[in-house]
Design a protein around this nucleic acid. Structure first.
Lengths: 232, 232
DNA sequence: AAGAAAAAGAGAGCACTGCTCTTGACGGGC
DNA sequence: GCCCGTCAAGAGCAGTGCTCTCTTTTTCTT
């Protein structure tokens, strides 16, 4: 029974995959708003309504693309982190930074889908969150490792986090375990700083100003590492 | 002659304004992709083709909205800065931070238009840049003032900017005049950190994690101030 | 004041879009 | 061998940006 059933299921999986592949291609050339189910169907030699057998709506296709995107970025970050010696926390941080930036530059529209403006009317379903934090989990492990190894400079001269922050810090600690509140706060700073920089570069805020973005980025991330307390 | 000329021109200006107002309303409720010239025309009791007498294309309307947005944000930032004593550089920085965040929270779709994903196929014309840097100019003045007043902590422990950065630093110095390269670098860090944070908060990256965003933001911006070298 | 010129509105139409509904064909489980 | 679920196809709805032509209104010039 399963042999014949899988025959059907296999072609279904195949077509589903082909749809997302073509959609990703459209995303790369036209952007999220240029995603057209009819155009996908045309390219597949299918009639437009047939697509709805595989994705009930445009938003569901979008969800699939978003999850794929988070996973692709997460995997890139995981690989970059794994390629550096585990005790070289600063090197791991920098590797992660470059992995994020390189992936974003290689897939600008996908990055925009993940970290840019939310698509209006689109509500991200819960399925996305697991994929969404893959990169953050890697980052959290680096910070935790560094703290555990005792190499995190206490960085005095910075204000102590207010009492109102402790609740939020606790929730962040699920991802960056075992570190005190002030490290949580600085870790958030570096993480938002990384994506803020990449977004500025990718979304054109640096146009005609930063002409050697890689060098500026590298230095900026080294500064963030220092702020975090990582050794130079 | 000008009296009669202005009669026509006045109604034209009036209608142009009405179009952008309705468009801004659409932007707030539907987002950028929900902008519909036909819906605007309908709301004005006009025929859709008539809109094209005022804006040759959807992109031109978008440009107008973008410029308006930059100006609105710039004005909010200017006001916030002006409300603080000129020598209180840290206070001015925090006021600017909150002005950006408050404006973004009040006009999320407009913020997304300015600092989120670029609209695919849309090429920002040169007219936008003057408006786009209004907020940055205010920020640059704060940093310059603080440096000139000699209150900027040198913040050693941070890596020195590489030689490759000097060219870019020079271009940034047009906006933050009179400060050395390392201050330029840290100023960029704080600025991108501010917008990175606001974008994370607004675009949902903090969902279910940061529940008291204002407190966390305030502390984060104080840390950025410290990184920059501003006195506590 | 009269006529030429410029500007604006109206409406039809083109080529698209997402999405729904119905119809007809195919193929595996009873 | 029937029967029902799965699927493709096609027509159709309501909407989009934009272009074209035609008519009306306003402004400028003589």
């Amino acid at each position: 029974m399963s042999a014949s059933r899988t025959a059907r299921e296999r072609v279904r999986a195949e077509l589903t995959r082909e749809i997302t592949d073509i959609a990703r291609g459209q995303l790369a050339t036209e952007g999220a708003s240029g995603l057209s189910l009819r155009a996908i169907a045309r390219e597949m030699g299918m009639v437009s309504s047939a697509i709805y057998r595989y994705f009930p709506s445009r938003d569901d296709l979008l969800t699939a693309l978003i999850i794929d995107g988070y996973n692709a970025l997460g995997e890139a970050v995981e690989k970059a982190d794994a390629a550096v010696a585990r005790e070289d926390h600063t090197g791991r941080w920098l590797a992660v930074c470059h992995a994020v930036r390189d992936w974003a530059l290689a897939h600008p529209h996908e990055y925009a889908l993940l970290y840019g403006s939310p698509v209006p009317g689109y509500k991200a379903p819960m399925d996305t969150v697991a994929a969404a934090i893959r990169d953050t989990v890697v980052y959290g492990r680096i910070v935790s490792d560094a703290h555990e190894a005792g190499v995190l400079n206490p960085r005095d001269g910075f204000p102590a986090p207010p009492a109102a922050f402790s609740g939020d810090a606790g929730r962040v600690r699920d991802i960056i375990p075992g570190v005190p509140d002030d490290v949580i706060a600085r870790a958030l700073l570096a993480w938002t700083g990384l994506f803020g920089w990449v977004s500025f570069e990718l979304f054109g805020q640096f146009n005609n100003v930063i002409l050697d973005p890689r060098a500026a980025f590298e230095h900026a991330m080294r500064c963030h590492a220092a702020l975090l307390g990582l050794p130079a």
